[in-house]
Amino acid sequence: MNFTPIEELFHKFDETALILQEELACTYLDALGETGENFFHGNVVQEEVSELSRKRLSRQYHEFSLEKYSKEDIRKAFQLAILKGMKENIQPNHQMTPDAVGMFVSYLIGKFTNNNYELSMIDPAAGTGNLLFTILNHLSDKRISAYGVDIDETLIRLSYSGANLQEHSVQFFNQDSLEPLFIDPADIAVSDLPVGYYPNDVRAADYELAADEGHSFSHHLFIEQSITHVKPGGYLFFIIPNGLFLSEEASKLNDYLKKTTHIQGMVQLPLSMFKSEAAAKSILILQKTKEGVTPPKNALLVDLPKLSDRRATESVMNKIDAWFKEEK
Rank of each mutant, 00 (worst) to 15 (best):
S216M: 05
M266N: 08
L253E: 04
P241C: 03
R203W: 12
A211C: 08
D255V: 12
G196F: 04
A210D: 08
K252Y: 02
A204P: 02
N200F: 10
R203I: 07
V230T: 11
F245E: 13
G234W: 10
P241S: 06
F222R: 03
T260H: 13
A205E: 08
L253M: 15
A211D: 06
D255C: 07
L209F: 04
P199N: 09
L209R: 10
K259R: 10
V202S: 13
F245H: 01
R203H: 09
S216K: 01
H229M: 13
N242L: 04
H219A: 08
Q268Y: 11
V195W: 06
D206S: 06
A211Q: 06
H215S: 09
Y207Q: 07
Y256G: 01
L209Q: 11
H229C: 12
S251R: 15
K231W: 05
T228L: 15
Q268F: 06
S226C: 03
T228M: 14
I240A: 04
K258H: 03
E248R: 15
T260F: 05
D206Q: 13
F238G: 02
K231Y: 05
H229E: 11
I240M: 03
I263V: 04
I223Y: 02
L236A: 07
M266Y: 06
A204H: 05
M266S: 07
E208P: 05
D212I: 12
Y198N: 07
K231H: 08
G234M: 07
F245T: 12
G243M: 12
L236S: 13
A205P: 03
V230H: 02
L236R: 03
I227Q: 03
D201Y: 08
A211F: 01
R203S: 11
V267P: 06
P270D: 05
H220C: 12
V230L: 00
F222P: 11
V202Y: 10
L236E: 11
H220G: 10
Y198M: 00
I239Y: 05
Y197M: 13
E208W: 14
I223W: 06
P270Y: 01
H229I: 14
F222K: 05
H220D: 13
F217A: 11
G234V: 12
L253D: 04
E208H: 15
L209E: 05
D212Q: 14
L246W: 02
V267T: 01
A204V: 01
V202P: 11
T228V: 15
L253Q: 07
F217Y: 15
N254P: 00
E248C: 08
N200A: 12
I239C: 02
S216I: 06
F237Y: 00
V195A: 09
R203K: 09
G265A: 04
H262S: 06
H215I: 07
L253C: 11
A205D: 14
H215T: 12
R203T: 09
E249F: 08
P199V: 15
L236G: 07
F245V: 13
L253W: 05
S216N: 05
L257T: 02
G243A: 12
L244C: 07
K231L: 09
E249Q: 10
Q225C: 11
Y207C: 12
Y197A: 10
D206C: 10
K252G: 12
T228P: 08
H229N: 15
Q268L: 13
L257M: 03
Q264M: 14
I240Q: 03
K258L: 03
F238H: 00
G234I: 10
I263Q: 07
H220F: 15
H262N: 04
Y256S: 04
H262F: 14
